[in-house]
Design a protein around this nucleic acid. Sequence first.
DNA 1: TTTTCCTCATGATCTAGGTCATAAACCTAT
DNA 2: ATAGGTTTATGACCTAGATCATGAGGAAAA
Lengths: 198, 198
Amino acid sequence: MIEGSLLVKYGAVVKQYAKDEIIFFKNDLPRFYFQVISGEVKMNSYNEAGKEFIQGIFSAGRSFGEPPLFGDFNYPASAISIDETTVYVLRKELFHNLLLENPNIHLQFTEVLANRLYYKATMASGHSSNNAEERIIQLIDYLKFHVYKIPVNELYEVELTRQQIGDLTGLRVETVIRVLKKMEKQNEIQIRNRKVYR
Amino acid sequence: MIEGSLLVKYGAVVKQYAKDEIIFFKNDLPRFYFQVISGEVKMNSYNEAGKEFIQGIFSAGRSFGEPPLFGDFNYPASAISIDETTVYVLRKELFHNLLLENPNIHLQFTEVLANRLYYKATMASGHSSNNAEERIIQLIDYLKFHVYKIPVNELYEVELTRQQIGDLTGLRVETVIRVLKKMEKQNEIQIRNRKVYR
DNA sequence: TTTTCCTCATGATCTAGGTCATAAACCTAT
DNA sequence: ATAGGTTTATGACCTAGATCATGAGGAAAA
């Protein structure tokens, strides 16, 4: 996360989106750095069969859609607000200036990308396994340990719907529901009035 | 890719590995920046069932295993030479210095991570589809257009074995073989004495 | 020039997860 | 309170890809 004041100093503006507004489309030319102030944004794409795949969900303080600002490729997914959301928006060139003139911020930004890559690498090995349970555990553990940094002995409440878990792992809702129940029986997770804990 | 001379100036040393040597293990503590001089390295991990998953294959000029140098996590996969290979090895702290003192190199390095993320994002949406053909096309097209930058109208020879394609996409060899044949019939690829072109 | 090893190939099954259908539980706004 | 929408739940099938088994082709080495 980059300080709002610094972003503004370099020319960022605040933009507001209602729920379910599209911030940019897959294949659009990337021209801005985005950072969530409040609300939540998801990045998604649809496969040939029309099934949604969620690349990531970004809450307050997180930036999204930055990689294409550094490679010569377009957005690999669309960005959509899933709540009423406000974001900082900073033009690509100005963002580059910001990084070049603030080496520590740049280093910190590198950390953000590194963490994102770690998430992708982790999920990729799970996806490849074609094993529903492995995929779901990988997702939940990533959230618990790497996003929210909950200690092992503490219980973490997964604040995702079954559908979202499915869209993040490439599984169908029904499968997610069934596998979660199986996992509960095996004491790998707990379910208390429909909420998942691990 | 960072100039060898610059790496050496900051203290990098050249290290040599025979074929199939392990450079680092999954879960090791990351302490070095690695960049391939000659030969080839793969990063892999194994799922619960023992099936290999290849996170990436890195040839001359490419660096690997950098993200953990910037986050507080260990290697999510192992690195193994798949040929006789030489690499530059630079201590983490010295690599950080290099980036901080050379902003353009840092920016260029950010581009490397951005491209890697693009690959992961692309493959992730394919994996999630659970459709063998989609996964394979995604891999081949990524290599053709984003790694080797071959124009659409030119033919690209995939220099991977069926097994490697399987390990990169999470499919079994037999499936890869069958799907490639099907794709050939549909004129999506060509196969000339066992080599795949697209 | 034969042995060895790796890669490609193909057929016969099996199975995890997808698909379809239907409904209950919960939530929210009017 | 209650209607309408969303999320969770469950059962009955079906299908793509995994699994298992077996062999052929090619390349490198001995």
